[in-house]
Simulated scan of single mutants.
Amino acid sequence: MGLSDDPELQPLLFGMFLSTYLVTMLGNLLIILVVSSDSCLHTTMYFFLSNLSLADIGFTSTTIPKMIVDIQTHSRVISYVGCLTQMSIFTLFGCLDSLLLTAMAYDRFVAICHPLHYPVFMNFHLCGLLVLVSFFISLLHSHLHSLMVSQLAFFMDVEIPHFFCDPSQLFNLACFEISTYNVLIYFIGAIFGGVPLTGILFPYTRIVSSILRVSSTDGKYKAFSTCGSHLSAVCLFYGTGLGVYLSSAVSRSARKGAVASLMYTVVTPMLNPFIYSLRNKDIKKAMQRLFRRTV
């Protein structure tokens, strides 16, 4: 059903979504290009950052292009298989985003709390393994969602009050009572969402306590600055995501929930490159070197 039925708003929505998607793609591709082309950024922290940008590209590309095509063609139809595919890929990249943010929190924890052991603990073999494990866990999460939705029965023509096939909306549109499925979906969400969030909060409690023990003000500022960008991305991703689902549990307006979902599905992937580039001197210097070489 999209975000609005007003024909006068469709050109505005088309321009907004198209420009947002282009900025998201260019920003995240630029992060990947800068990290891969500059040898000074060939560290574990920027390895995770480039993978996070790749996950953001997949996360955004699952929903926005379909929305743009629907507005342009004045058609909001999606097939059953297409809906399941969109939901699966959306869940895959959403979970991958969360797990990569957790891995980056562990990287900052080792760098600040155990700096002498950092080269041993955070080698590229371990980082590659963490990314691989994160991908397979996300694949399992996505498969569980698809398996549960594929067991549901729907009417022939279903109107989804959203701009993409959100799993929670699909469960609400089933033909029969699915209280067991609701319990199961919340249980899976608590595991695949709560465990990574705990894995982020625990290292940061140790990081803050370690920074507060530093005597010099410059040392504290330097330590806080190394994890400031990551902490901003975590607050943006989890804050908007939890806010949307908690507000949807209180409010019964599905259309308002769809509008609120724009924050973590569209705005967050677009802002991540700005967060990491504007607050990071190494990224800005690497971009300047890349532009000089290009010119």
Rank of each mutant, 00 (worst) to 15 (best):
S4C: 10
S4M: 06
D6Y: 03
P7F: 02
G15A: 12
L18C: 11
S19W: 07
L22Y: 02
T24E: 06
M25S: 08
M25F: 11
L29I: 09
L30R: 11
S37Y: 05
S39H: 09
T43R: 12
T44M: 05
Y46P: 09
F48N: 13
L54H: 06
D56H: 05
G58Q: 00
F59K: 00
I64V: 15
M67A: 14
V69N: 01
D70V: 01
D70R: 12
Q72S: 15
H74C: 05
G82Q: 08
C83E: 07
Q86H: 02
F90A: 02
L92T: 01
G94L: 03
S98F: 12
S98V: 14
A111M: 11
H114R: 13
L116T: 10
L116G: 01
V120Y: 09
M122Q: 07
N123I: 02
F124R: 11
H125G: 03
F135G: 03
L139E: 01
S142H: 12
H143R: 04
L144Y: 04
H145Q: 03
M148H: 04
V149K: 04
S150Y: 10
Q151V: 01
Q151S: 15
A153F: 07
A153H: 11
F155D: 15
V158R: 06
E159N: 12
E159L: 12
E159R: 12
I160C: 15
P161E: 13
F163R: 05
F163L: 06
S168K: 09
S168E: 07
S179V: 11
V183R: 13
G189V: 06
F192H: 07
F192I: 12
F192W: 13
G194C: 09
G199F: 10
I200W: 07
L201N: 03
F202Q: 07
P203C: 05
P203L: 04
T205F: 14
R206C: 10
I207E: 08
V208N: 01
S209C: 05
S210W: 00
L212N: 15
S215A: 11
K220N: 10
K222F: 05
T226V: 12
S232R: 06
A233Y: 00
C235P: 00
G241K: 05
G243S: 09
G243H: 08
V244A: 06
L246E: 00
S248Q: 15
A249P: 00
S253V: 10
R255D: 13
G257K: 12
A258M: 06
S261H: 03
T265A: 05
V266D: 02
V267N: 00
T268F: 04
M270L: 14
M270F: 09
N272H: 14
I275P: 02
S277E: 01
L278F: 14
R279F: 12
R279H: 13
K285W: 04
A286E: 01
R292Y: 14
